[in-house]
């Protein structure tokens, strides 16, 4: 048979997600964090872990893990016991013994209860008998000027412009399924700019993080999804990323909490300079 006709599932941004990684099973980590609250993780199984902050109450949660290179992991879990929905994303960098923790919460904004708020903290991995590394992952402007096309699935691709240290801009090409999927949201916003942050993990590897806050504020119930935070661990040596989304999606008219893993293959792209240089309507 022509396998084009294979009865595959329907995918969105998750078709090209790289396979999960189980190799951290049995490992334990002590993350010494710069904000003063240290984390301990014990990976108890392929998808279960025990974790605690500052040695307090140990909690058990499900986790998922992807790799961006041979020694760099993106590990995510939610805190099932939290009052407000809380998601943790760790970039565990075994090469440099460094860690970045991105904490996301839903429900902190009284006007926009579905808006995801996020916070970064940087730290190092403590190993008994060894000094803590001095360096840290850090916010960066290295990616300024980068234009990249990300292929998320069959005929589903988007084009990103990183032209600010606090925003990003996205193009949904007419030929891509992405326009059809996201058209319901983009029609309500004056531009595709959204808040973003850029963290350097190592040479040619960055954690790119965005929150769909303008689309949440301006689109509300009219869109196809609600505020999402998306964290992309981008490998510019290999030109791919692995990542996770954390937020809400509309299913049968209701906002349903969700968090999916995703991934994409990249290539350079020439973007229209008018698009890249257009003023950002959200800033003075």
């Amino acid at each position: 048979m022509n396998l084009k006709d294979y009865p595959r599932k329907k995918y969105s941004i998750n078709q090209f997600t790289q396979p999960p990684c189980y190799e951290l099973e049995g490992e334990s980590f002590y993350f010494a964090m710069d904000d003063g609250y240290d984390y301990q993780l014990l990976i108890t199984g392929k998808d279960t872990l025990e974790w605690s902050i500052d040695g307090k109450e140990k909690r058990t949660d499900k986790y998922r893990c992807l790799k961006s290179d041979d020694t760099t992991y993106l590990l995510v879990h939610e805190d099932d016991g939290a009052q407000l929905r809380t998601g943790y994303t760790y970039v565990i960098d075994l090469e440099q013994r460094l860690v970045t923790i991105l904490t996301c919460k839903v429900g902190l904004n009284p006007k926009f209860p579905l808006l995801v708020t996020s916070n970064f903290d940087f730290g190092a991995i403590r190993i008994e008998g060894e000094e803590l590394p001095f360096k840290r992952h850090s916010f960066t402007d290295d990616l300024l000027g980068t234009c990249v096309e990300w292929h998320w699935g069959s005929n589903f691709y988007t084009q990103h412009s990183y032209n600010s240290t606090t925003f990003y801009r996205i193009m949904l090409p007419k030929e891509s399924v992405s326009l059809k999927v996201l058209a319901g949201t983009v029609q309500y916003t004056p531009s595709s700019d959204e808040w973003a942050r850029y963290v350097k993990i190592k040479d040619n590897m960055y954690l790119f993080d965005l929150t769909e806050s303008y689309s949440e504020k301006l689109t509300g119930d009219n869109g196809t999804h609600r505020s999402n935070n998306m964290a992309f661990l981008q490998n510019y040596d290999r030109m791919y990323h692995v990542g996770r989304h954390f937020g809400n999606t509309f299913i049968d008219g209701k906002a349903v909490p969700g968090s999916i893993l995703f991934g994409a293959f990249g290539n350079p792209v020439d973007l229209d300079s008018e698009f890249v240089n257009a003023p950002n309507p959200y800033i003075v």
């Binding site: 290295d142 990616l143 300024l144 000027g145 980068t146 234009c147 990249v148 096309e149 040619n204 960055y206 510019y236 040596d237 290999r238 030109m239 990249g266 290539n267 350079p268 792209v269």
Partner: peptide
């Protein structure tokens, strides 16, 4: 700097 590249490093 534009970090998107054609992967010449790897083939």
């Amino acid at each position: 700097m534009n970090h998107a590249n054609n992967g010449a490093k790897y083939g």
